[in-house]
Design a protein around this nucleic acid. Structure first.
Lengths: 161, 161
DNA sequence: TTTCGCGTCATACTTTCGGGTGATTTAGCG
DNA sequence: CGCTAAATCACCCGAAAGTATGACGCGAAA
């Protein structure tokens, strides 16, 4: 359990941990080097310069690792095949026969486009409950039990495109 | 002329110049500060740490400024009308492009027929969880969030009849 | 041999769906 | 006017769908 928790934590924060550890190591190294530099302390500019360069590099590396890269969108057109033998017309006869109202058909069309009930509600400016009621009635009239079946059936009956 | 040349040079290499100048200034500042640190030279770790942090930040900033933006191809669908009213064939190219496996396509087909996850599981002799995993992957690859959307999209791409 | 994609399964959780029931309002119709 | 269909909304509840994460075996590719 604990090992799992630790390994999880480690994987999530690998970058930070490595960074912290390496920084600590570096400071330690510098502390040790310091003894020499106390003697010839006029070389401190070089020393500082080296550190500056080193950590600049580290910063760049960090930025590369941690930042989401800038994206430049390039748009490529791609064909999508559509079986269009002609214009689609709602099978009014079938609609009437099944007693599906205009509003219900609207809901059905939106559902067929993959919208959730909530999204349909927002699109039609009605409440979620209303959409649920409509879709329930649709299911009854189409004699199905789910939205996916409803769409399938409605397509066959040419109630929707 | 010279002023123009200089301004052109400046504009092209503003980043580098600013970086160089600020680095020089910083070194100068440090040289000045050094006098104090020679007295209380035990604070050198703090001093080094500060420099490290500062230049890490500078590196990050530099990286941000200098990275070339990565290109992200965004695909726009363009409708192409197909006269084929006859038999259906799976758009293999599209399937390959999206990396949808055969098994995933099977699940997708059954889902498109209006079957529930449980029914798909029984039909394929696998567990409910397996079907869920497959459909999740399908959703990722088709970039959708629900089975209804997946079916809609798959139809457009001619992955299913 | 190691790596990788695929298929399989699981657990735990959140969100969405769908069923059941009832209520109100509005418009049309006899 | 009463009646009815349609549209609207509400509350509850269980089932289904979807998310996140991890694990395991297996065969092909590197």
């Amino acid at each position: 359990m604990t090992s799992n928790a630790f390994s999880g934590f480690y994987h999530k924060h690998r970058q930070e941990i490595l960074y912290g550890v390496s920084l600590a190591l570096l400071l330690f190294l510098l502390r040790w080097l310091e003894l020499r530099f106390l003697i010839l302390d006029h070389i401190i500019e070089i020393y500082v310069g080296a550190i500056a360069l080193l950590f600049t590099g580290l910063g760049i590396w960090l930025a590369h690792k941690l930042t989401t890269p800038k994206v430049e969108t390039r748009i490529v057109e791609r064909e999508v095949f559509v079986t269009a033998g002609g214009e689609f017309t709602v099978n009014e006869g079938e609609r009437m026969r099944l007693g599906i109202s205009q509003r219900e058909l609207e809901v059905l069309q939106l559902v067929a486009q993959g919208l959730s009930n909530q999204e349909v509600a927002e699109r039609l400016f009605v409440s979620l409950n209303t959409v649920k009621t409509h879709s329930s009635r649709i299911f009854e009239k189409l004699e199905v039990r789910s939205r996916t079946q409803a769409v399938e059936r409605a397509r066959r009956l040419r109630l929707i495109a």
